[in-house]
Design a protein around this nucleic acid. Sequence first.
DNA 1: AATTGTGAAACACTTCACAGCC
DNA 2: GGCTGTGAAGTGTTTCACAATT
Lengths: 209, 209
Amino acid sequence: MARRIPEVVIKRLPVYLRVLNDLVRKDVEIISSAELAHHTGFSSEQIRKDLAYFGAFGTRGVGYNTRTLSEKIKGILGLDREVPVVLVGAGNLGTALARYSMNKHEDVRIVAVFDNDWDKIGKKIEDVEIKPMEDLEEVIKETGAKMAIITVPAVAAQEVAEKLEKAGIESILNFSPAKLSVGEGVYLQNIDLTIELQSLAFYTSNNEG
Amino acid sequence: MARRIPEVVIKRLPVYLRVLNDLVRKDVEIISSAELAHHTGFSSEQIRKDLAYFGAFGTRGVGYNTRTLSEKIKGILGLDREVPVVLVGAGNLGTALARYSMNKHEDVRIVAVFDNDWDKIGKKIEDVEIKPMEDLEEVIKETGAKMAIITVPAVAAQEVAEKLEKAGIESILNFSPAKLSVGEGVYLQNIDLTIELQSLAFYTSNNEG
DNA sequence: AATTGTGAAACACTTCACAGCC
DNA sequence: GGCTGTGAAGTGTTTCACAATT
């Protein structure tokens, strides 16, 4: 314990959480790591090791209490309260993500959308008004958002990242195909759809390999 | 050479490709692994090792020819010809991805969109008509698509995956939050936005750690 | 002189195997 | 008896360091 936790471990926690919440809903009270493995596709050892980073949540000979473990994981991830997120870039993808997030009533929720296009500003995405970039810092302070999503074109992304950092954002999900540089204190996760599609092509019979 | 190539390596190739194409456009003819490292954020050794999986493309003491290396990587990934992709699920996200793909004239291109909602069928996304699921196999054969994107709700995803596999699709990019099972011959890549958002929350000051 | 290509070392993550506990 | 929690072994990836080459 108390050692640095691998990113891959953090990425598996939401998967466990999803299965656990489903089980809680079905009134299943206890689950073994072997059953969790079956539901998630990860190995039971891996699941036990992952959880062991944070504590000993199970009962030997028995398994894990679904509700307790779910609460624990929510606490670890910080999902035990509403998590407000701001989104910058109300283009096709940004709008789709905003709608997606607002329609599922989940813990992590897009609470504000920004753009610099005055044709979009003032319009609404599911009750949330698109605001100008000038309002960014103020709204981030008001909402207490610590997370942000960037869905602006590559050329604008670095500038947006800097504004977000300045406004106190601590983690960024970047969908723009730009290599962003942010300070030490900011966690940056990139999802590059072009990379995903192009790398997918490798696993097809239409290549040299 | 001739050994299995790690997935992480394949994911880095499109990044090299992007930088190389940019350099070719700027008439830069030669680049060293150190400069590539600077542009991509990966280490120069890693870049050299990655490329070494596929051959010796550089010149010692000199570097890599940008155009040649770009062509090589395109060949490795199978991007040396147009790569047709079909998309299933014309919801918010699916529509956004389709528009995004169709507006950039890149090698990988969404050429057909399917849905089972008759209110959507017949409507167009940037000149491409939304087609019913019944046409899936036929259109996949006609277009020669080997890749597919799934943007349907979780409950429908497994069924869609099976139809795609049956129609000869070899790799799938799945955006639905479902654990899909596909045959040996099909490569499956998952992008789960809920997981991304929830794991992002961990790297924020609002959690237990 | 400069930079690639690559074994060897280091590091990171996963799987094994079993002691510990209920 | 059964399942967790965890050191030890195994596997995979990255970094180091340098010989090979232009």
